[in-house]
Design a protein around this nucleic acid. Structure first.
Length: 748
DNA sequence: TTGTTTATTCTTTTT
DNA sequence: GAATAAACAA
């Protein structure tokens, strides 16, 4: 530890207001801090940890601190280190998920896992669930895999195992869902894999089942701190309780007004009734906002005011005045993007850095219009979130090979790369392999490596042999302790993955190659920085990485992200866009009051990100599902008193100045399947005229022109109306049978 | 068995 | 309009 320091030193090195200071030095546990937006929540948490280490002589490795993202954890660790001047390497600070994964790897054998277990992301979960449903002969149309997954997730978030919920299904559907859960869970264990929810649920299960393990961690973690407590779910609450209720030294920080993860199982009740679960809690309230101007804060307060069921609080700021909040109206989403980019340029010219500005939206899909507008104007930007790097096909393929190297039981990964790049193993051979694995209770890769799968065609057999040799080679390279990036490189060469992409010579393939290169670089850098780190550790980091983790505010580019992603961040200027009913609030949450309230808080979170200027916008019509939909301003805007913002109407100006922007597209009329079928039943005689208003009339022998096949002659016509098929002999001698509706033929 | 074309569905939000 | 599933031609 450091040399003795005098009792006020830590408090001298960090500026705290009286309330913050009280929370930091308080010795009466447990402690709860209600910290409104911008009131210095992170500052208090950091100071608290530093105070514990320096003043209370707590060893860093005795502290368990859960944050919402890895990035927040990393920042907090280095801030604490700066404050106390010693390394805090041993401190447990990270997301619940990453720390649970760490505990579970240490104790894996106790719950039927090896330490090398794989972590499944949503994509993997879905693949596994599909496989499970297939083996149960459940039709995906009767039970949507995604829905089943959300049901399972809800159970896991409440720490309910399949056994716990067995027999509780009210409807047939519920019972089937429980049956799927049971088999899904079995499959996870069989493949030595855990999904995100398992990381928490299994940690709780472990601590409950093994008293001496629990006792170990309880004595180890003398202090338990939790950031963003309003976003914890039941399982996380249980974990905190298990670790901390013995000694009661628990310190949580949060803001019920910023609870925006209810859909993921988070319970605001956790923070609202904290003192019920942790008796004799000392509660603090931070209400002085250091971030925003009075104008921004007044607006934000008005947004949240209508929400019921919140702990009473009133944020105030010393930053009187400030630019008024603007609410802009645009004709459509393209104009909105254009208008916002215009404003961004103005602010940029006036001295605000691009990196200090952000465009915040409800859905990822909204980013497109902005990206296009920004690219047109050559404004540098970063898009945070969306399809992350590690979710790209080519990257997931590479990772699947690596995952299999670490955990050969991972059938989801094996299934993924079985025929990637294609090596002649089709659906049939795949089923044969799966069946062989099932019969001998081995994993797919184990069967492949053993090379004893029978009943395959020659082509598939040699394909499997090829795959087998790839893995034998990779394992040999691991034996020789070759660098992980070299092993990946070797795999990509041997399998011909690189060759395939190179010979494709398309822009897309080039982008893929570039991504793969980037992955190899990341792997190389990573293995250099983490001497002890093997492939397994790299994979863990990758699967628990968040989008925001890779975000760097220092690069001076305009930030585009979802409202969810923006939580915890602040920007000088903020644009909250797409403020329309159906989008914010989302239409899917219209009928549920609690969900609607969460949408409102989402808007509040967005508004409170702004330090100096806040501009909101909504449009009259928006492109959705490929067609232009009329939109009305968000009900949350209507609830804000008009004196708190200035309205700017861009619709008329835009219509005159940008006639080309009003792109008119003919609405495509779609023939519904059932509609077509009914008509056919009614009509006994072929009567083309009713259908053929927009379909060209054809006759046998007619000469026609096809867009890709060129000129040809109609040989025969079958079916009628929307089902009409034409057999055409093209001039190059090929004969094709085409649907008249889609053939797009011209008479010639 | 494979690539291509066609049909359908879909959008919240993410550890 | 894009991603994905199904259907089809080769």
């Amino acid at each position: 530890m450091t040399s003795p320091t005098n009792s006020v030193s830590i408090l001298q090195r960090i500026t705290l207001n009286p309330q913050q200071k009280e929370a930091v030095v308080c010795e009466k546990w447990p402690q709860l801090v209600f910290a409104g937006a911008g009131t210095g929540k992170t500052r208090v948490l950091t100071a608290k940890i530093a105070y514990l280490i320096e003043q209370r002589r707590v060893y860093p490795n005795r502290i368990f601190a859960a944050t919402f993202t890895n990035k927040a954890a990393g920042e907090m660790r280095s801030r604490v280190e700066n404050l106390v001047g010693i390394s805090c390497k041993g401190m447990w600070i990270g997301t619940f998920h990453s720390m649970c994964a760490r505990i579970l790897r240490q104790q894996a054998h106790r719950i039927g896992y090896t330490p090398a277990f794989t972590i499944f992301d949503q994509d993997d979960q879905l693949s596994l669930l599909r496989a499970v449903m297939k083996s149960l002969e459940l039709d995906e149309r009767t039970m949507q895999p995604r829905h089943a997954l959300s049901v399972i997730s809800k159970y896991k978030n409440r720490c309910l195992s399949p056994e716990d919920v067995a027999g509780t299904g009210k409807s047939y559907y519920d019972q089937e869902a429980i049956r799927v859960y049971e088999h899904y869970q079995k499959a996870l264990v069989q493949q030595q894999a855990m999904d995100f929810d398992d990381l928490i649920a299994n940690a709780v299960r472990l601590l409950r089942a093994e008293p001496e393990v629990l006792q170990n961690y309880r004595t180890m973690f003398e202090y338990v701190l939790v950031d963003e407590y309003q976003d914890t779910n039941v399982a996380q609450f249980h974990l905190v309780q298990l670790l901390a209720s013995g000694h009661g030294r628990v310190f949580v920080v949060g803001d019920d007004d910023q609870s925006i993860y209810g859909w993921r199982g988070a319970q605001v009740e956790n923070i609202l009734s904290f003192d019920r679960h942790f008796p004799n809690t000392t509660t603090f309230k931070l209400e002085e906002n250091y971030r925003s101007t009075q104008a921004v804060l007044d607006f934000a307060n008005a947004v949240i005011r209508s929400n019921t069921r919140r702990a009473p609080k009133q944020l105030w700021t010393g930053k009187a005045g400030g630019a008024g909040v603007i609410v802009a109206r645009y004709g459509d989403d393209r104009q909105e993007a254009q208008g916002v980019v215009e404003r961004v340029s103005e602010l940029s010219r006036a001295g605000t850095k691009l990196g200090d500005m952000a465009v915040l939206f409800r859905t990822n899909a909204q980013s497109r219009a902005f990206e296009e507008a920004l690219r047109r104007r050559n404004v540098p930007y970063v898009l945070v979130g969306g399809i992350s790097f590690y979710e790209r096909k080519e990257i997931k393929d590479c990772l699947a090979y690596l995952r299999l190297l670490v955990n050969p039981k991972d059938d989801v990964s094996c299934d993924r790369i079985l025929n990637v790049p294609s090596r002649g193993i089709g659906a049939k051979s795949r089923d044969t392999l799966i069946e062989a694995a099932r019969r001998s209770s081995r994993s797919m890769l184990e069967v492949i490596v053993a090379g004893d799968c029978t009943g395959l065609g020659a082509k598939s057999f040699s394909g499997l042999e090829e795959l087998r040799s790839v893995f034998l080679l990779m394992r040999e390279l691991v034996e020789q302790s070759r660098a992980p990036n070299e092993i990946l490189q070797e795999m990509l060469t041997v399998t011909g993955y690189i060759d395939r992409l190179e010979s494709e010579e398309s822009e897309e393939a080039d982008a893929r190659l570039e991504n793969i290169n980037e992955l190899m670089n990341a792997l190389a850098i990573w293995s250099q920085e983490n001497e002890a780190g093997g492939i397994a550790e790299f994979l863990e980091e990758v699967s628990l990485a968040t989008d925001i983790d890779r975000w760097d505010k220092e690069t001076d580019s305009l930030n585009l992200m979802t409202l969810h992603c923006a939580k915890g961040l602040e920007f000088s200027s903020v644009f909250v866009v797409g403020l329309e009913d159906g989008l914010l609030p989302s239409r899917q949450n219209f009928d549920d009051e609690a969900k609607l309230a969460e949408e409102c808080r989402l808007f509040y979170v967005g508004a409170t990100r702004a330090m100096r200027t806040l501009e909101c916008s909504h449009v009259d019509q928006r492109w959705r599902f490929g067609s232009l939909m009329p939109m009305t301003p968000s009900r949350f805007l209507e609830a804000v008193p008009e004196k708190l913002f200035d309205t700017v109407d861009h619709t008329r100006v835009a219509a005159e100045a940008l006639p080309s922007m009003l792109s008119f597209r003919p609405q495509r009329v779609r023939e519904s399947k059932s509609g077509g079928g009914e008509r056919r039943k009614i009509r006994i005689e072929p009567q083309h005229d009713e259908f053929d208003q927009d379909i060209v009339q054809y006759r046998m022998g007619q000469h026609v022109m096809h867009r890709t096949y060129g000129p040809g002659k109609i040989l025969s016509i079958s079916g009628f109306g929307p089902d009409m098929r034409l057999t055409i002999l093209f001039n190059d001698g090929t004969r094709k049978r085409l649907m008249a509706r889609f053939a797009n033929l011209e008479s010639s």
